[in-house]
Design a protein around this nucleic acid. Structure first.
Length: 579
RNA sequence: GGGUUUGUAGCUCAGCUGGAUAGAGCAGUGCCCUUCUAAGGCAAAGGUCGGGGAUUCGAAUUCCUCCAAGCCCA
């Protein structure tokens, strides 16, 4: 279907041409405004070029506008705005078509996009810092899918670093007699892991803390990590079990947040490509040795800042985080044939990714020219304005945070709905709590840092997730009680505000998609909910006497509900039928 | 030191490519539940948009400069 914006632009474009103003692509664009339903500001832009006052141009154009049946009540306002209204009947017809069309995904773009988000580490419980990547990444994925991209979400698990050595050490410390640590052992290893996830969650922080001050322990851990990466049998067997157990637990946590990954690959999965990539780079002369390390220069002319070289191998000859990243891109190119990769990671990693991206481009190793994008998000800071710490003992795990919000929601539901059953209360509280948490996280502009504020996550009033859920349930309740008839759907002037708000959806998803910024959708959902609540409060819907008016109001209620549901779906927030 | 991001109401934040009186939410004030879920609505109050300069019909938005903070690299 043709969007109203396009229709209006065509009408205005023709009028501008007929009036003698031509040759600019932006001519005739109209936007929803407060001084009419729509406003066109083009006359202001043309004044200089044609040496005429904007007011005169506006008047010229208005005389040539042919918007029969669509546009009405055109006025010109100083210094050169063209304000106008949309015919109610026309808008009603358009709106119905728009809504049945817009809920479905757009036409496939044919683009394959991999979204790298989540960023959990094996053996480590998720903490508040993981919230943003999961929430933003999942929403970006859903938005891109809606816009027609073929999307793959990859959790890209941290499963190959020093933390694995730490956990293996912890297992050893607890029971050094396990067969995993016997170098002479050649038989099968037990199928059951010698630990539970709950034990792992304690082990890692414990060793990590101790390794900071204990040099000897730190060295031991490094040795274990090295042996693991060299393929020591017992360690590898144990490592695999750690990953299995971790994955299961991490998946449960992400499920709670409604973040669902298509791929559960980790850093270690690219190791098949690692040697090949390193060889390739060295053989083709892209690297040089500096202070014993093998590096690739990635500085470019015109750089404002000095971009340090990409590190391929350190002085000990071992691969680094950056090497793994490079190998992973090659893997994604070969195995998935992606066109674009989005990295939904903390802003602080930007330089690292700039280096990786430049290196990939420089060494010319990919089959396809992949569009690599750094989609950074602001840091979750503590109350002191410094990044929220995990290792300081007082760290808040995601579990604890969720429990806190759920408890708060329980309290709230119990007091406002005393007649609900316990299971009902429990179910509602969970959904409300997660919606509060996710919406609070998502509604802040992606790139900005945000203060970790428990009260904000626990807030259920105002611009929050629960407000949107509440609006949906209100609409539901109306629809359940409404006995609709077959009357005409026709928009009166007072219903138009809600109708115009509904059709703004396209602009919102589009900018959310283009900027990889779900916060635009949060803003939109809130403004729509707000508009609906005003509409709801103004007059009764189901007790409306006039059948046309009643039918129209019921339809608008239904549209709003569907639209809000759509937005929440794109934000990956579950909704409720009743609360 | 270099780079980078940010500075908008008491607090937390919107304000996209410059457009009419700078918008929300919390907190605080006053109303509104014997008709659709008050987790709501309505009304009022709150701001020299960090300071200064430049560009123009018009700047929170673009440019320059200074101040302050965060982050990254050294």
């Amino acid at each position: 279907m043709e969007l109203l914006n396009t229709t209006l632009k065509q009408i205005f474009l023709k009028a501008f041409r007929d009036a003698g103003y031509d040759d600019d692509v932006t001519v005739g664009e109209c936007a929803i405004a407060n001084f009419g339903d729509f406003q066109c500001q083009t006359p202001l832009l043309l004044a200089k070029k044609y040496h005429k006052s904007p007011l005169a141009i506006a008047n010229d154009v208005v005389a040539h506008i042919d918007g029969e049946g669509i546009i009405k009540n055109i006025t010109v306002a100083s210094p050169g705005y063209i304000n106008f209204f949309i015919d109610g009947e026309y808008l009603a017809k358009y709106l119905q078509e728009y809504l049945s069309d817009v809920v479905d995904a757009r036409k496939p773009t044919g683009k394959k996009v991999l979204i790298d988000y989540g960023g959990a580490n094996c053996a480590k419980p998720l903490h508040v810092g993981h919230l943003r990547s999961a929430d933003i990444g999942e929403s970006i994925k859903r938005i891109a899918k809606y816009m027609g991209d073929d999307c793959i979400g990859d959790v890209h698990l941290g499963d190959w670093g020093l933390q694995m050595g730490m956990v293996i050490y912890a297992v050893w410390e607890k029971n050094p007699n396990l067969v995993y640590f016997d170098e002479n052992y050649t038989g099968e290893y037990p199928s059951q892991p010698p630990f539970t996830m709950d034990e792992l969650k304690v082990m890692y922080p414990n060793i990590s803390q101790r390794a900071k001050t204990d040099e000897v322990l730190h060295e031991k851990v490094k040795k274990i990590t090295y042996d693991l990466q060299q393929g020591r049998r017992g360690y590898v067997a144990l490592w695999k079990q750690i990953i299995e157990v971790s994955k299961k637990s991490i998946k449960q946590d992400y499920d709670k947040l409604n973040a669902h990954f298509d791929l559960w690959l980790g850093e270690s999965d690219s190791k098949n490509y690692q040697d090949e990539v390193v060889d390739y780079v060295i053989k083709n002369g892209y690297s040089r040795v500096s202070d014993g390390a093998t590096i690739v220069d990635v500085a470019q002319e015109g750089d404002k800042a000095e971009i340090p070289p990409f590190m391929l191998l350190n002085s000990a000859g071992s691969a680094l985080y950056s090497t793994t990243e490079l190998a992973t891109i090659v893997q994604r190119d070969r195995e998935f044939g992606v066109d674009k990769i989005l990295y939904v990671v903390d802003n602080r990693q930007e330089l690292h990714f700039v280096q990786v991206f430049r290196c990939v481009k420089k060494i010319n190793i990919l089959k396809k020219d992949i569009d690599l994008q750094f989609v950074g998000f602001g840091t979750m800071n503590g109350p002191d304005g410094k990044p929220y710490k995990t290792r300081d003992g007082k760290a808040m795990g995601l579990d604890d945070l969720m429990q806190m919000v759920v408890d708060k929601a329980l309290e709230k539901v119990k007091q406002s709905k005393p007649d609900y059953s316990d299971t009902e209360i429990e179910n509602i509280s969970k959904v409300v709590a997660i919606s509060a948490l996710k919406f609070a996280d998502l509604s802040v502009l992606r790139t900005k840092d945000l203060v970790f504020d428990v009260d904000k996550f626990c807030s259920f009033e105002g611009k929050t997730g629960p407000y949107i859920l509440y609006t949906i349930t209100r609409a539901n309740s109306v629809l359940a009680k409404a006995d609709d008839c077959d009357a005409k759907f026709s928009l009166s002037d007072e219903d138009k505000r809600l109708a115009l708000c509904l059709i703004k959806f396209t602009d919102s998803v589009t900018s959310a998609y283009e900027k990889n910024a779900p916060s635009f959708l949060c803003d939109y959902a809130y403004s729509l909910a707000n508009e609906f609540n005003t509409f709801y409060g103004k007059s009764s819907i189901i007790y409306e006497k006039d059948s046309t008016k009643k039918h129209t109001k019921i339809m608008l209620t239904k549209f709003t509900k569907n639209m809000l549901q759509k937005c929440m779906d794109l934000l990956a927030i579950n909704t409720l039928e009743k609360m």
